[in-house]
Each structure stands twice: as structure tokens, then as C-alpha cells.
Design a protein around this nucleic acid. Structure first.
Ligand SMILES: [Zn+2]
Ligand SMILES: [Zn+2]
Ligand SMILES: [Zn+2]
Ligand SMILES: [Zn+2]
Lengths: 160, 160
DNA sequence: AAGGAAATTGAAATTCATTTTCAATATCAT
DNA sequence: ATGATATTGAAAATGAATTTCAATTTCCTT
């Protein structure tokens, strides 16, 4: 991806945040701008704490609470999504409502890989249907060992 | 299922627990016996707190901590499994290593329904394979509205 | 460009589930 | 029965998530 394309995407999202704030009678602040920028440029699935540490390196005056609250705001505005994996920490990922995906999580190095699978989406419908259940969303997490970690270790244990 | 069949199953599991305890140099106690019995006869996905409340009705002398610790023990022995759904509470379900399953969770009433789907299991392998990922286990949770709750409400919102 | 109502900030306090500590008690191999 | 060791339960500690509150900032109105 070109540098300008990415920048444009981030700029668009920041506009979206501004609209969201204005609509709700909320205010745009220096802190929110910095936090949103840092978050949107970061690819991963970060905890509030992690993002705070990253921001704190450059901005000693921005507190953890504000980072936490801004992530909640981003979530409410539809720009971020909260995710909780098996370590039970709340992580945030940059998100647009159109891009649902699921995750592969490495039990060794903790790396999180995203995937999207049409068959899986269809299967959710089918399974729910069998129970006359009306599905709204789902969570599919595959835990195991990533390619990198597989190279290093040769054998692994059993299933849950 | 017949009453005696269920009883036998529970009895078998209690034997399994005893073996586990003996092997580890741990002791069988009145409390552990009561807690295991109550847990194994309970079908649901209970939190430590919920199980404690159930037990506390009949056994005022058994503390929360012991219930909590016994659930951990049951988990280590392979008779229970810990589950965390979107309310972020740790729940325990009676479990045998052979019966992997996934869950349908109602956003309205909180009911938890189990399902097992072969296609889903196969699909996990396929997806992991695409990423040269070595899968050990997975978690599939479908959130939506159960049949009962669908009867009452007619319309529901969007997706994640 | 002030003025001022209303929102935001950051440190500290609180919440709440979970986990650990510790002194008293129970288990069980000998 | 004895004694070494594990267990128990109340209370304390932990730690992430959330709330409180006084000081500050934003931004609408004049
Ligand atoms: Zn890895
Ligand atoms: Zn993701
Ligand atoms: Zn329901
Ligand atoms: Zn289950």
C-alpha cells in the first residue's frame, strides 16, 4: 500500500471521528487527536495499556485514563472494535464495520493473525438455523502455533 | 436419559477425580465430594459464584474459596473446562476430553446452547492450513437471539 | 475577542472478579 | 493413635477496568 493511500484512509477515519464527536455534542481535543492518530496508524490488536505506553514515549502529559476513554470513544464511533482473547485482556483493533474477520492466535509467541472465510460465515447461518437461533455476530478464534513458532519447536500436545 | 445412567456417569467421574487426587498426593475431603457432586449434576455453564450460592443453600460451612479451588482442580483433572464468554466471567462446564463443542449465546436472556458441527471442525483445519498454522483448539461463539427471545421481540439490529 | 456553560483531563480512588495468604483444622499413610 | 502434609475459609491482595472530582480546556454566544 502506498504511503498516501494509507494516510488518506487515516485522514478519512479522523474525519469520521470528528463528525461523531460533533453530533454527540462532544469536543475535539489535542489528546483525542494524538491518540486517534497513533491508534489508527498502529496495525495490531493493542490493549489500552500498550497504546498508552506507546503514546507516553512522546507525550508525557497524556494520561492512561484519557487513552482508555478515547479507545472507548473510538469503539462507540465505529472506528475500533474491542476484542478479548484467551488472556482476558481487552484489546482494540482499528475497524470498519464492513470488515468482519476472525483470528488465529499463537499459543507460543502470542501473534494474532486475521482471516476472513466465506464458508465460515455461511456455516454460522446454517448452524444458527438448526437451532432457530437468530445470529447477530460471532467469534471464531483458532489457537495453535504459527508458522514461525512451528519452525522452532517440533512437537505439540493435545486438544480442547 | 435414565436416572441410573446419569448417576453412573457422575459416579464414574467422581472416581476419576479420586484417582487424580491420589496420583497428585492430594486428599479427598467432604467439601470436594459435595462440590464435585453438585457440579457434575448441574448441566449448565456456571460461574464459581453461582455454584457457591447453590451449594451454600445446603452447606453453610463451605466457603467460596473452596468452591473456586475445587473448580480449578476439576479443570486440572480434565472433568471441567473453563469458558469465558462476552460477559467476561469465568464459567465452568462439566466436560470430558472427547466432547468438544461450541456455543450459541443469547444476547437477550443469556442462555447458552451447545452445538457440535463436523463441517466447522474440518473448516478449522483448512483455514489454519492456509496460514501454515498448527491448530490445537478453537472457540466458536455465535451471539444472537434464541428461539424463545425471538418469539417475544420482532426486530433486531446490526452486525460486528 | 471575551465570557461562560459544558465537556475533558489526569491522578487518584473505586470496583469487582479472581487469586493468594495464613493460621486453624482435617486427612491419611504408617 | 501419631505426625507430616494437605485443606479450609476468612480476609487480604491483586490487577484490569471504570469512576470520581477539581482543575483545565473547548467552543458557542455575545
Ligand atoms: Zn508464534
Ligand atoms: Zn482482528
Ligand atoms: Zn434468549
Ligand atoms: Zn459448553
Amino acid at each position: 500500500m502506498q504511503k498516501s493511500a494509507k494516510s488518506l484512509e487515516v485522514a478519512g477515519k479522523k474525519e469520521q471521528l470528528k463528525s461523531f464527536l460533533k453530533e454527540g455534542g462532544l469536543k475535539s481535543t489535542r489528546q483525542r487527536d494524538i491518540i486517534a492518530t497513533e491508534f489508527l496508524n498502529n496495525k495490531g490488536h493493542v490493549t489500552a495499556e500498550e497504546l498508552y505506553r506507546i503514546i507516553n514515549r512522546k507525550h508525557k502529559d497524556i494520561g492512561f485514563t484519557t487513552v482508555y476513554r478515547t479507545l472507548k470513544l473510538l469503539t462507540r464511533s465505529g472506528l475500533a472494535a474491542e476484542r478479548v482473547f484467551s488472556d482476558n485482556l481487552t484489546r482494540y483493533e482499528s475497524f470498519s464495520s464492513e470488515d468482519h474477520h476472525d483470528h488465529l492466535i499463537c499459543l507460543n509467541c502470542g501473534s494474532i493473525t486475521e482471516f476472513k472465510n466465506e464458508k465460515l460465515e455461511k456455516l454460522q447461518e446454517k448452524i444458527a438455523d438448526d437451532f432457530s437461533f437468530h445470529p447477530m455476530t460471532h467469534k471464531m478464534e483458532i489457537y495453535g502455533y504459527c508458522m514461525e513458532c512451528n519452525k522452532q519447536t517440533s512437537k505439540h500436545g493435545e486438544q480442547t
